[in-house]
C-alpha cells in the first residue's frame, strides 16, 4: 500500500499572474538552519562557504544573524549533521515554503505589508522581517525578483494577502 508519498502544499500550484507581478510557489527544496560561534568550523563541517555579514547571500547560503545561517539545496540533498561538534545543523526543509514574486511591481506588492524600504534593498540580500505582523524571510535576487519564505501554517494567509495587494495594484498606477 505504500505508494510514493504525496506532498501537499497549502497554496495553489498555479502562479497568480498580474500585469506587473507574478506570484508563484517555488519548487520544494532542502533547507538547513546552521548555527555556530565559529563560522570556520561550520564551514569545515558542512563544506559550505558562509557569508559573514548579516543579510549577505553567497550562493544558496544566507547569513541571518551573528551565529546563524540558512542554506538551501535541491530537494533530496543531504548535509552532515555535525554531531559532536560545536555546531547545530537542523533540517528545516518542511518548515517553510517559498513564494517568488517577479516583475516590475514586485517591490510595491511587498511594500503593501512590509515596513522595510523594499525598493532600495540591495541584491542579492536576504533578511527576516515582517509582512503585516507575520515573520518572513525576504530575499531580493534581482531588481524585479524577490522571494518570500514563510512558515507553512502562515502560507495560505500570506498568499491571500500578496495576491490581494497585487490585485489592488492593478487599480493603483505607480
Amino acid at each position: 500500500m505504500a505508494d510514493t508519498p504525496v506532498r501537499s502544499m497549502p497554496v495553489p500550484a498555479e502562479p497568480a499572474v498580474f500585469s506587473g507581478v507574478t506570484i508563484a510557489l517555488a519548487a520544494p527544496c532542502a533547507r538547513w538552519s546552521l548555527r555556530a560561534r565559529d563560522a570556520a568550523l561550520l564551514e569545515k563541517v558542512t563544506g559550505l562557504k558562509l557569508p559573514r555579514k548579516i543579510g549577505e547571500v553567497v550562493g544558496e547560503t544566507v547569513c541571518l544573524g551573528p551565529d546563524e545561517w540558512l542554506t538551501r539545496a535541491p530537494a533530496g540533498a543531504t548535509l552532515p549533521d555535525g554531531a559532536g561538534e560545536k555546531v547545530a545543523v537542523v533540517d528545516i526543509a518542511e518548515r517553510a515554503l517559498t513564494l517568488t514574486l517577479s516583475g516590475p511591481a514586485a517591490a510595491r506588492v511587498i511594500a503593501a505589508g512590509c515596513p522595510r524600504d523594499v525598493e532600495r534593498l540591495p541584491f542579492p540580500y536576504a533578511s527576516r522581517t515582517v509582512f503585516e505582523g507575520v515573520e518572513v524571510l525576504l530575499q531580493r535576487d534581482a531588481e524585479d525578483a524577490f522571494t518570500i519564505e514563510v512558515w507553512r501554517s502562515f502560507a495560505p494567509w500570506l498568499w491571500t494577502a500578496l495576491t490581494q495587494a497585487a490585485a489592488d495594484m492593478e487599480h493603483l498606477p505607480a
Binding site: I54, G55, G65, P66, P115, R116, S127, R128, T129, V130, G133
Partner: peptide
C-alpha cells in the same frame, strides 16, 4: 512606528521587527 538601530545588523530597522 519607531525605528531602532540593531547593533548586530548595524542598521536602522522598523520597530515592528523588535
Amino acid at each position: 512606528m519607531i525605528l531602532i538601530h540593531c547593533p548586530y545588523c548595524d542598521e536602522q530597522r522598523p520597530g515592528l521587527e523588535f
